[in-house]
Write a protein that binds this DNA or RNA. Structure first.
Length: 274
DNA sequence: TATAGTGTTATCGG
DNA sequence: ACCGATAACACTAT
């Protein structure tokens, strides 16, 4: 589920319900999700601290952590990436849940989720849980977020032009490159290209200035719409990414192929190769 | 049973 | 060393 809009929702959940609560326990026993740390490392680093702030760039989140009671030195950052199927769930001691209820099962205690891969327990018994069936999400201390490109939600026009300025990669592959621009995933990329009426396989080097402009505008509006709607699934063309579908704008068949290593759908008539 | 999937990254060839 | 393409990762749903 998570592209930039979903990750921003998760960030907001942590901001509303996860900050300034004393951490008394950490479940970091999933050594795949918590790699490269050994089980117990994150526990040792976070117990007796609080999350003091939460940040997001692209699809990556991280939390600042407080100093210990007898110290002035802040703790390490807690990096959280949702991967393909991760969600953040806050479970209160009384069983109240914020988001993620899909994964709760009858007979389990509050906060005990079937696909729980990492969890913080707070002093009052509440928990912050990473629920992630596929385990492609990632939790680590001091994540290397400085290598990400500019955030897609706040990128400037000049930065956007620079993203497309060099190379011969298909536009879609470049939009998905998190080191070039951070936050765009497979569905958002298809929506942006559909809005801009550009074929996903067009090489970046051959774009005209007005096409770059159209892409920048589509990126801005698609992300704003997805954040407002509550996720990339609310974007107009996404339900038409399936066999036999026709473009909701002009009724032409939707075409499918692999571009940039990902399944891509576009309108055959409005998004032709030149 | 076989395949695809809202993501990232190591690896390989040019 | 840079750029682009591909496979692999873990697991579920169709």
């Amino acid at each position: 589920m998570p592209e930039l809009p979903e990750v921003d929702s998760a960030r907001a959940v942590i901001e509303r319900h996860g900050l300034d609560r004393l951490i008394v326990d950490v479940d970091d026993t999933d050594s795949y999700v918590c790699r490269p740390h050994a089980p117990g490392d994150i526990h040792a680093a976070l117990v007796d601290r609080t999350l003091s702030a939460v940040h997001r760039v692209g699809k990556s989140m991280w939390c600042d952590t407080s100093a210990l009671a007898d110290s002035a030195i802040a703790g390490p950052a807690l990096g959280i990436h949702l991967g393909m199927s991760g969600k953040i769930v806050i479970a209160d001691p009384d069983g109240a849940e914020i988001d993620g209820g899909d994964y709760w099962e009858r007979g389990r205690a509050a906060g005990d989720y079937r696909y729980s891969r990492f969890a913080l327990t707070f002093a009052d018994g509440g928990r912050l849980v990473l629920v992630d069936p596929r385990r492609l999400g990632r939790v680590r201390l001091d994540p290397p977020v400085e290598r990400l490109g500019p955030d897609a939600a706040t990128i400037t026009a000049a930065q956007f032009r620079a993203v497309l300025a060099r190379g011969t990669a298909p536009i879609k592959a470049r939009l998905l490159d998190q080191h070039a621009i951070a936050g765009i995933g497979n569905l958002l990329a298809d929506e942006i290209l559909w809005q801009a009426r550009l074929n996903p396989a067009r090489p970046v080097g051959e774009l005209a200035p007005d096409e770059v402009k159209a892409l920048a505008r589509a990126t801005r509006t698609a992300i704003a719409a997805a954040v407002r709607g509550g996720g990339v699934h609310t974007l107009p063309v996404i339900p038409f990414r399936q066999a036999g579908a026709t473009c909701p704008r002009d009724g032409a068949p939707m075409a499918r192929s692999t571009v940039g290593g990902r399944t891509s759908w576009w309108c055959e008539r409005e998004q032709p190769l030149p």
